[in-house]
């Protein structure tokens, strides 16, 4: 217990830049995600959210800059290596294995996730536990292709969580959901955080982000515009201007 040094952050992004041709989609963005947070990033269309997310998730190589997790450089890691490093992701457009059952979908993640469960029965047991935790156990034997969009999104998260990540990257998980479903989904994010997994969350919907996040990064034109707690962000004149245009004073209710 004599460890006085603070733990390095679970995610550390340092001066990340990505050019597409001559255009900088992300320029010089740096931030840190601390363990136990729900960290969100928002921004108007074309702000570079998806590019930034894809780089962190290992789907895209940055032009320059570094991504670290607990002090380890993970910039060049491929998605399957990130899973082993304790970082899992969900996709904006759900990608269940449609020819498999719900259980098989999750079992795959148990098998290949960080726990690397080799025995079939142990993987099944692990998958059932996670499914039950997410209230999906009644769908275990159903084909993944017949689930509703809301359930498919929940399967997407369940499956990612079955890899036992320390950090979960969520890409617009509330897109296409009703208000009730969105509220439920945000609750799941809180429960995931409380269970010990840090969450990084990208969302279009400002209300959803401010409702659930402990800390928010605002992007605009590929640059960091503001960063802080939701209250701070909502009152930042630069953010208000980016979203609403110059003369401030009108409030947006959605």
């Amino acid at each position: 217990m004599a460890d006085a040094k603070p733990k390095p952050p679970i995610l550390e992004v340092e001066r990340l830049t990505k050019y597409f041709g001559g255009l900088a989609a992300v320029k010089d963005v740096s931030f840190e995600v601390r363990e136990g947070q729900i960290f969100g990033f928002i921004g108007p269309n074309g702000a570079g959210k998806t590019t930034l997310f894809s780089i962190i998730a290992g789907a895209l190589k940055p032009s320059s800059g570094k991504v670290r997790s607990r002090g380890r450089d993970i910039t060049a890691l491929k998605p399957f290596q990130l899973v082993q490093a304790g970082i899992a992701r969900t996709h904006q457009i759900v990608r269940p294995f449609r020819e498999m059952t719900v259980l098989e979908n999750v079992k795959l993640a148990s098998h290949f996730g960080r726990k690397n469960v080799t025995s079939d029965s142990a993987a099944e047991e692990h998958a059932m536990q996670i499914l039950t935790w997410f209230g999906m156990e009644t769908f275990a034997q159903k084909s993944a292709s017949i689930l509703s969009v809301g359930l498919q999104k929940r399967l997407e998260i369940t499956r990612a969580m079955a890899t036992e990540p320390d950090l979960l990257l969520c890409d617009e998980i509330c897109g296409g959901l009703t208000h009730v479903e969105t509220a439920a989904m945000l609750d799941w994010l809180r429960r995931i955080r409380d269970r010990g997994t840090t969450v990084m969350y990208v969302e279009h919907d400002v209300k959803a982000i401010t409702a659930v996040c402990d800390r928010i990064l605002v992007l605009n034109y590929g640059r960091k515009l503001s960063e802080g707690a939701p209250d701070h962000i909502q009152q930042d004149p630069a953010v208000i201007e980016a979203y609403l245009g110059h003369p401030p004073g009108r409030r947006q209710e959605g």
Partner: peptide, 23 residues
């Protein structure tokens, strides 16, 4: 497990990689 991994790659290579399979 090997067969399960192959099966996942056939259905969606990126999703499989995102769950730890090395395609």
């Amino acid at each position: 497990r090997f067969g399960l991994g192959l099966n996942a790659i056939r259905q969606d290579e990126d999703a499989a990689a995102g769950l730890g399979v090395n395609p």
